[in-house]
């Protein structure tokens, strides 16, 4: 039998936090994906909200492009507070 579609599962552990990737599972439809995610990823109160997304609907950056995408940020050290050395008297800014 062919596999059911693969779904990625995101769980919010409590209000105020982001949904975070928890893992994946196969399910015939969205409702079943939510129910299976409940059974598999929240058996010990790990969450109060579940998102499921078909894995094929996720577009990911290519690891080969890593340098091109992220190199620029590495050189911009002036974006970090530690770049600015202040006198001791006001250094808790």
């Amino acid at each position: 039998m062919k596999d059911w579609p693969l779904w990625e599962v995101f769980i919010r552990s409590k209000n105020g936090l982001h949904h975070k990737h928890a893992g994946s599972l196969h399910a015939a439809d969205a409702q079943m994906a939510i129910e299976n995610a409940r059974d598999v990823y929240t058996r010990r109160n790990e969450g109060n909200s579940i998102w499921v997304v078909k894995s094929t609907d996720i577009v990911a950056s290519d690891p080969e492009d890593g340098d091109m995408l992220f190199e620029a940020a590495k050189s911009k050290i002036y974006r970090h507070p530690t770049f600015y050395q202040l006198p001791d008297e006001v250094n808790n800014m």
């Binding site: 039998m1 596999d3 693969l6 893992g23 994946s24 599972l25 059974d39 598999v40 058996r43």
Partner: peptide, 26 residues
């Protein structure tokens, strides 16, 4: 029963990890 259910979950986490390497669950 809870322990056995966990083991089923463990199987699923691991199958999912293997699937990221290009092998199908089937």
């Amino acid at each position: 029963l809870a322990k056995i259910q966990d083991e089923g979950g463990h199987g699923l986490y691991l199958y999912s990890a293997a699937e990221t390497l290009g092998v199908s669950r089937e």
